[in-house]
Design a protein around this nucleic acid. Structure first.
Lengths: 275, 275
DNA sequence: CTAGATTTGTTCGTATGTATC
DNA sequence: TGATACATACGAACAAATCTA
């Protein structure tokens, strides 16, 4: 049983999947890195004895998985690309879209992971990091107008993203950033959930300020205590939207914002008779 | 900017990606579930005014992401498939393959998450679950021969997988299962790392037995304490392979086992002159 | 700055295999 | 068993993008 690429259902592996797996094995065995180039389509065609479309499908799989990028022109072709966390994040959202997930469960993890992450970056922040953190706090407190609630939330989450980028553990960093992204998109959907928002904003900014202070003095225990309180407090204020997350998670907010696209399929299948 | 499918690099979205995004939007807006069928290729061709290959590529993207499965024959076509955790797990491994990751970092998370998971399933185990757990312990202790160290590890990890399947929080369950899968594949690679293995096996079995006991009496605090100790102990014994994980993570162990495939590309490009 | 070369991106047409009825 | 519907695969050709001279 080879069958590595699409193991969701036991079935006969298709030709393109075998080819993409073979290329993956090649990448792993040669320990290739960013920038190395694969042979061009023609060479792959005659190597595997397959048609152009089949090779293209194999390359498509690798592109969707974020392992290569395809460019046209001379010196173009398939170059190996070390994937960021976006593809993994996207797939995880696809998975969670069909699960029932509520804010309580998100914070069950956030309370653990954000604290662990906060502690793990003590002593690892550069002066540039401190400047970004303090700039974020300043932006948070200054634009505290009543206008744009969402911008406020974005900035607060960005504070945590800055911390995550400094984390030396890539797994921990990924999970925290994923949780932050989910909360960010949740804010996009729920346009206004404004109970006692004012004091919540103030409390958040206070936590962030204290965190930076503790980081300056590299006081690990204080970092742990403040972040734990911060998460506890945030969970309490999240109880407002204690329901139906994971409903609209298939499309990331990047594609939601801007035009409010409706799918062509929806238009066609609902009207079913167009002039 | 639509551009949701492959956001690893900012570039003009290709036609196939736009189509797959549109289909995704359709799935999300109609809140379709498992088993619902998409229009067939011909209908999609004339709907989007694109050729067969282009539509096929769009469907390919959705298939790689685990959102649909393609079947041949009448009543075949693209049926919506609620993705399991395999696609997300695969992408996360792709990401980590290019990061430096060691056993210490894995256990930094495992110590937090396995304990949280263990506590969260107290009172949620059915009698069938208990039977599976006890059967696992029995299999662990009986086949304690010196023959197959790997089988022993597989069974021990399977104990934790059983617990994870009973966890009501899908995010927490995913992360624990992912960590277990990574450790499982690591065992496949490192064929024999046998320092004081015997007493380690015995200790593990003892922890597992005590855990089942505590679950029977629904003693939450005891579950927490035992699992915490179990993870602490396991981390200590993992220090043997404190180095280079994440090297061979691109291909899952399913495809590694069996034939020890070498890639065609490797064969061709190294010899470079075939008779 | 234009022109050509190179390589991917897209399309059409056709043939094959396979599962259902 | 055969007919049908559908995905799968092949091959050739054209279009578009991009580097280089």
């Amino acid at each position: 049983m080879v069958q590595a690429s699409v193991p969701t259902s036991r079935r006969r592996p298709k030709l393109a999947e075998l080819i993409s797996d073979d290329i993956k094995r090649w990448i792993a065995s040669e320990s290739l890195g960013e920038g190395d180039r694969l042979p061009n389509e023609k060479a792959l065609m005659e190597l595997y004895g397959s048609a152009k479309a089949t090779v293209r499908e194999a390359l498509k799989i690798l592109e969707v998985e974020g392992l290569i990028t395809l460019k046209t022109g001379p010196k173009g072709g398939a170059v190996i690309n070390q994937p960021g966390m976006e593809p993994a994040s996207r797939m995880l959202r696809n998975f969670l879209h069909f699960q029932q997930l509520d804010g309580r469960q998100v914070y069950q993890l956030r309370k653990l992971l954000e604290v662990e992450l906060a502690v793990s970056v003590v002593g690892r922040l550069t002066e540039a990091d401190f400047q970004q953190l303090e700039a974020n706090i300043a932006a948070c407190s200054c634009c505290g107008g009543e206008e744009d609630h969402r911008r406020q939330r974005f900035l607060e989450l960005e504070f945590h993203q800055l911390l995550a980028r400094a984390c030396p553990n890539p797994l921990l960093a990924f999970m925290c950033q994923f949780l932050n992204d989910m909360l960010r998109d949740l804010v996009v959907i729920k346009k206004a959930y404004v109970p006692e928002r004012k004091q919540f904003d103030h409390a958040n900014q206070d936590y962030h300020r204290q965190l930076v202070e503790a980081y300056r003095t590299e006081d690990t225990q204080r970092v742990r205590r403040i972040m734990a309180e911060h998460m506890q407090d945030a969970e309490h204020h999240m109880s407002a939207l204690e329901a139906e997350m994971a409903a609209q998670m298939l499309i990331s907010s990047d594609s939601l914002s801007g035009h409010n696209h409706r799918s062509k399929l929806h238009d066609l299948l609902s009207e079913n008779a167009a002039p």
